[in-house]
Computed example of a mutant assay.
Amino acid sequence: MKLNKQLLAGIIFLIGLLFVTFVGPYLPFIDEDIEKKGMMITENGEIEIPPFPPSSEYWLGERFARY
């Protein structure tokens, strides 16, 4: 029987994905204290709502502020 390398690689990736899906939330390095903010007030007093534009704090912009 010939070894199908693509099938083997697909099975390994599927097992890894299932592992992360079901076991991932219980891993010890997951930060459960992340707080999402719905809006931010800039230094100028302007109110920004998500998605936030790029700035010195968020170089690529952010959908949610994480602190």
Rank of each mutant, 00 (worst) to 15 (best):
K36I: 01
I34F: 01
D33S: 15
P50Q: 10
F19I: 14
L18G: 14
S56A: 11
A9W: 01
F29L: 13
G61P: 11
G61Q: 03
G45T: 12
I49R: 10
L18R: 01
E46N: 15
A65R: 14
I49C: 05
L8G: 01
I12D: 05
L17E: 04
S56K: 11
K2D: 01
I12P: 02
E46M: 12
L3G: 00
L3H: 05
E62N: 02
M39V: 04
Y67S: 06
G10C: 07
P51T: 03
E62K: 09
F13I: 10
E48W: 13
L17Q: 03
I30T: 11
G61M: 03
F29W: 15
F22H: 15
P53D: 08
W59P: 11
F13M: 07
F22T: 15
T21M: 11
G24R: 12
D31Q: 12
F19K: 07
G38F: 00
I47M: 12
D33I: 00
L7N: 08
Q6T: 12
Y26A: 15
I30K: 11
D31G: 06
K37Y: 14
I11A: 10
P54K: 09
E57K: 12
G16I: 01
I41D: 00
L7H: 09
I47V: 15
G38T: 04
K5N: 06
Y67F: 06
E35Q: 08
I34E: 07
P25C: 09
K5I: 12
I15Y: 01
L7A: 13
D33T: 14
K5W: 08
G61L: 06
G10I: 02
P28D: 13
G61K: 02
I34G: 05
F52P: 05
K37G: 01
F29K: 13
E57D: 12
G16T: 03
L7I: 13
I47D: 00
D31T: 07
L14H: 01
F52D: 04
F22V: 15
G10M: 02
K2Y: 04
E32D: 11
L17K: 00
L7P: 04
R63T: 05
M1Y: 06
I12Y: 00
T21L: 14
S56M: 07
A65L: 10
G61S: 07
A9Y: 00
W59I: 08
N4R: 06
I15E: 05
L17V: 07
A65G: 10
T21A: 14
E48L: 15
I12C: 04
Q6M: 08
Y67K: 06
I49G: 02
E57M: 11
M39G: 00
F22L: 15
N4W: 09
S56Y: 12
L60I: 04
Q6C: 07
F64N: 03
G45R: 10
T42I: 04
P50G: 05
T21Q: 14
K37C: 04
I49Q: 04
D31W: 01
P50D: 13
D33P: 02
L27R: 13
F13H: 01
L18Q: 09
